[in-house]
Simulated scan of single mutants.
Amino acid sequence: MIAKTTIGRSFKGCCAYNMQKVEMGKGQVLMSQGVRDYELNPMVADFTRQAKMNPELTRSVWHTAISFDPKDEARLQLQPELMKAVASEYLTGMGLDQSQYVVIQHQDTVHSHFHIIANRVASNGQSISDSHNYNRSEKLLREIEQKHSLTLMKEQGYRLSLEHIPDRDRHRLEMRNEVRQSLERSTNSAELKADLAQRGIEVIVNRDQAGKARGLSFERISQIDNGEEIKVAFKGSKLHQNLSLGHIQEQLLENSLKRALELSKKPELDKSIGLEKGPQIEDKQLKQGRSLGM
């Protein structure tokens, strides 16, 4: 599956395009929550009313279009509930199930696809984050594909796109992708190193004569086309400018703060796992983020 997400300001334009498909018999409403899904104006009014609960969030429109691989078309025809299951799991995985949404299938193309229009202002007035939505969406789609045995569309396309480039460049692109994914879900250096170790990638801290960390390198043992094993190593800054030591430290700290905030909003979870409440949680997370073990 392929997903394309845009974050916008106007519900009317987004809803009008999709509802026009329904009115023309070229689409259907698969599911909805919290909005009148039978007509354009009431739907827009419902979305707009809830968005006003959080006036500071100016870009409150979440629009994602998800397309299936043509190879899955036969299954989608035989199992009409499959598309709804995918949409529901995507909504839940991205946190959109806590707000208003409408899911509309388009029926005027050779490949099946649907559109999600959701309100980034949740039903309780809180904002639904769009931070790193591309990486989160891609990871979630891969999980949904595997769960339902759907064609791994992006992975296949990604591998094919790397087939005819030099080995070292291919290794660089593959490693960059994996380091980014690990960094996305890590809050400190220990988590980052452990996650990358599972992928066969070792993190090397480059230090100066005084022992101060000056940079990072990533190493792994890879196979080239003839089956020979070679060591592949790249400095973080050579993988991408945002994978330098400084940028990685900033990202880990940002992830740490977000996790601390999530924990502070779940006192019942804190109690169940024996965590202390209040500033001590944030202090612990901040220390982890600042020290980074590097």
Rank of each mutant, 00 (worst) to 15 (best):
G211W: 02
E276G: 06
R142D: 10
M94Y: 02
A74I: 15
H113W: 04
G246Y: 03
V44A: 00
H132R: 14
L257M: 11
K266G: 11
L269N: 02
G200H: 08
H111F: 02
Q126M: 12
L76Y: 05
S222K: 13
E56K: 10
I281P: 03
Y134T: 09
G125I: 06
L257C: 08
I221N: 14
I221P: 08
L253M: 13
H164N: 12
R185Y: 00
R290G: 02
F47A: 05
S161H: 00
D195L: 13
N18E: 10
S244V: 05
R176W: 03
G25Y: 00
H171R: 13
R185V: 09
A233F: 00
L261Q: 11
G236T: 12
L30H: 02
S291P: 03
N124V: 04
L141N: 10
A118V: 04
I273M: 09
G25V: 01
Q156N: 11
E191Q: 13
Q198A: 04
G278Q: 04
Y38A: 08
M153Y: 06
Q249C: 12
G211I: 06
D195W: 03
Q98Y: 05
S186T: 08
C14K: 10
S32A: 14
A122H: 05
E138D: 14
E178V: 14
G157L: 11
E178W: 02
K154V: 13
A233H: 05
E73N: 09
L245G: 03
S129Y: 07
D195R: 15
M31A: 13
H164P: 02
